[in-house]
């Protein structure tokens, strides 16, 4: 009998809401007529439902929205100073989803800036220097030996003409004291 009461009590709520099948509803109704304990359970449930309904219906009328709407109006009408907007914007940028694309974008911009700096401010110390190497496309020493040196440290191209024709400079009396030892 106790097990049957437990089974019926589990279904009283559904019965009151009309959610049971016809046979199930009839079974609960017949049991409630003959069982004072389950009938008491039904009354408790009915009282609880009535109380909840009263709260839900009466609740919204007791809430005052005046302060809420006046607050919204104040925020709309308030003139924000520029630095509030700016700091708000910066704060938004520092959120993780924004940082995910902002950090690489800033790195790319800084690198592009460094490479472009030479165009805007020639000779700037911060600028990344372009390759100063001169490319020798053609060279003719007219029978003399010619050396082309590319000096890596200063990225300088040096073209050196060796005076290897005997007596070439006798007419001017010029003689080099030494050839460079690159």
């Amino acid at each position: 009998m106790i097990k049957r009461c437990e089974d019926i009590r589990d279904r009283i709520g559904a019965w009151m809401d009309g959610e049971l099948s016809r046979s199930g509803a009839e079974e609960v109704r017949v049991h409630l007529e003959s069982c004072p304990a389950c009938c008491e359970e039904r009354r408790q449930l009915e009282k609880l439902q009535a109380s909840l309904k009263a709260v839900l219906v009466a609740g919204p009328s007791n809430v005052s929205f005046e302060r809420f709407w006046s607050g919204v109006e104040q925020r709309i009408n308030r003139q924000r100073v520029w630095h509030e907007d700016f700091f708000g914007w910066v704060r938004d940028l520092s959120t993780p989803p924004q940082l995910a694309w902002l950090v690489p974008a800033v790195i790319i911009l800084v690198l592009m800036g460094m490479f472009s700096l030479e165009s805007f401010f020639p000779g700037s110390r911060l600028a990344v220097r372009r390759n100063n190497f001169a490319a020798v496309e053609s060279i003719d020493g007219f029978g003399r030996n010619v050396a082309v040196l590319r000096e890596n440290e200063t990225k300088t191209t040096i073209i050196w003409l060796y005076q290897n024709q005997e007596g070439e400079n006798e007419s001017t009396g010029e003689k080099s004291d030494a050839s460079p030892s690159f």
Binding site: N132, I139, D140, T156, T157, I159, L161
Partner: peptide, 21 residues
């Protein structure tokens, strides 16, 4: 003629040509 050469370089860049005594 001592030397005749064609050189490509960046604007503002330089190179050195040396040797004549």
């Amino acid at each position: 003629p001592l030397i005749d050469t064609t050189v490509r370089l960046n604007s503002g860049g330089n190179f050195l040509l040396g040797g004549p005594p």
